[in-house]
Structures are given as structure tokens and as C-alpha cells.
Design a protein around this nucleic acid. Structure first.
Lengths: 144, 144
DNA sequence: TATTGTTATACTCTATAACTATA
DNA sequence: TATAGTTATAGAGTATAACAATA
């Protein structure tokens, strides 16, 4: 008779559960900015890449399918938080850049997000958070 | 001019990304058993609780809304992997118990799952995995 | 009145495939 | 022929509200 390991020890289950918990908190924190978690990530990546980036690259860094990027970019572009322009060098490409308004909003949103997250992670201590970050980055796909 | 912390350092983002990665692997590993991640978790919890448990408790341990449990239990019951019977002591309650077939399937499924997961987590080392588990359990809600 | 399970509904997210325009 | 972006669609997951039976 084989014992079954408790679900509460399963790393996949725990990752999903903890992720859901932080995502829910992020959703609340971002709501005042009329950003959802997904659109925030797109905006944040646009801000990170000072020289802009293509939608394909966006999809890859977010771990999403390129087709999912379209609506996210549409929305942020309509709100003039990012711009989307055809790359003259290769007209298949569209380069995404954050606008000044986008950068300002992103900074504010990130502040709110960080504050919400640190409440949740406070119990862990700085060191455990750093180790957690490293471990998750080692698991995260995209660097194979 | 404020700097924006890279998205790839954001714990929420990383948790979701790593969780998605493990969930995708789990989905593949469970497919041969005709279990999806959700139904596996229900079955696993039913196996853990030797004396059965109510749907409300199931919902709470999984972090789901009770209304989402119904269809999951319906399916597993139809396949005779669990049983659902009215609690004579309190007829509002329905107790969920794993059947023998359910237990057998669960053990096999868990073995497949563990093997898939250890491939992904192998690079981390046992110690990092144990620390990750502890940290995630500290974040996980349900123990407030 | 409060609780357990249930149904219904709408919304978001995920996964695929096919299409267009450029190269 | 290959790649970037786009559109469409179906399926899974999430979030709420309301209801029946029971306490």
C-alpha cells in the first residue's frame, strides 16, 4: 500500500496557489490605474526597453502566444500609454515604445504593486524573498 | 526620474510564470489518466482524507469557490473514482470519499506527476526545493 | 437566519488554426 | 518559403449572484 504525498507539499500546486494569491492582490492594486495584470506587464516591458521592442519579443518575454499580445497592445495604444509603429527597416515588424504618459503611469502603478506585494511577503524576510526570486528565475522557462 | 524594477524580478510575475510552466507539465503527465490538474487535486484530497470530507472543505483547501467543485466532483463520481453520499448526521453535507479504483489511479497519477516535476526541478537541487516548498507554504493563503 | 450544495451567467484566460503582408 | 502581426473560435478557468434543502 503506497502512501500518497499530501497535495500541500506539491510544488506545482503551491506555485499556482501562491501565484493566484499574488495575482489577486496585484489585480486590486492595479485597478485604480485601470490596468489589469496583463496590460501592466506589457507596459512594464515597454518601459524597460528604452529602444522599444517587437510584439514577438513581448510575447516571448511574457510567455504568451503572439496572438494574445494584439488586444493588450491595442488597448494600451488607444490610451496613448504606448505607441506602435512600423519598423522602416523591416516593415513586418512593429516597434512598441512607452510614451511619457505610459512611463509615468507605470512608475505609479509599480509603486502601488510593490507596496501590496511587500505586505504579503513581509512575513518571509528579505533573505527568503531574494532566494525565492533566484529559485523562480531558475525554474522560469525562456532561458533554455 | 524613477527607475522601474525589471518585470523579471517581480515575485508575482515569476510565481505565475513558474506555476504556468509546472501546470503545463502536469497537464501532459496527467492526460494518460484522463485527469486534468483540477480533477487530480480533488481526487488527491479525497485520498488524503481517509474519513472523507465535505465539498466546502474541498473548496477551501483548493482555494476554489464551492460552485466550481460541483462539476469536478460530478465527473469523478461518474467515473466511480470517488463517492458522494449524504451525511446522515447533517443532511446538508455530502461526504466525498475516494473509491479503491480512485486510490489506485491516484497513486499511479502521482507517480507520473512526481517524475515529470523532478525533471523540471532537478536543476535546483533537493535543498532548494525544500526551501521553496517551505516558502510557498508560508505565502499560501488559508492559514490566516 | 445561516449553511451546504447547486445552477446560471458573464467574463477572462488559454490554445489553435488560418489569414495578410512583408521578407 | 519563412516570419511578424492579426483574426477567429472554442475551451478552460474565474467571479458572482441567486436558489433549494436542511439546520
Amino acid at each position: 500500500m503506497t502512501d500518497i504525498a499530501p497535495l500541500s507539499d506539491d510544488i506545482g500546486f503551491l506555485l499556482t496557489r501562491a501565484g493566484t494569491s499574488l495575482t489577486a492582490a496585484a489585480k486590486t492594486a492595479l485597478a485604480p490605474f485601470e490596468l489589469r495584470v496583463r496590460s501592466y506587464s506589457v507596459l512594464a516591458l515597454a518601459c524597460e526597453h528604452a529602444d522599444g521592442l517587437g510584439q514577438r519579443q513581448l510575447a516571448e518575454e511574457l510567455g504568451l502566444d503572439p496572438s494574445q499580445i494584439v488586444a493588450l497592445v491595442d488597448d494600451l495604444e488607444a490610451r496613448e500609454l504606448i505607441s506602435r509603429r512600423v519598423d522602416p527597416a523591416d516593415r513586418r515588424n512593429k516597434r512598441i515604445d512607452a510614451t511619457d504618459a505610459g512611463r509615468t503611469l507605470c512608475v505609479d502603478a509599480q509603486r502601488a504593486l510593490a507596496s501590496t506585494q511587500s505586505e504579503i511577503l513581509a512575513a518571509l524576510g528579505d533573505r527568503a524573498v531574494r532566494e525565492l526570486r533566484q529559485t523562480l528565475q531558475a525554474i522560469a522557462p525562456g532561458r533554455e
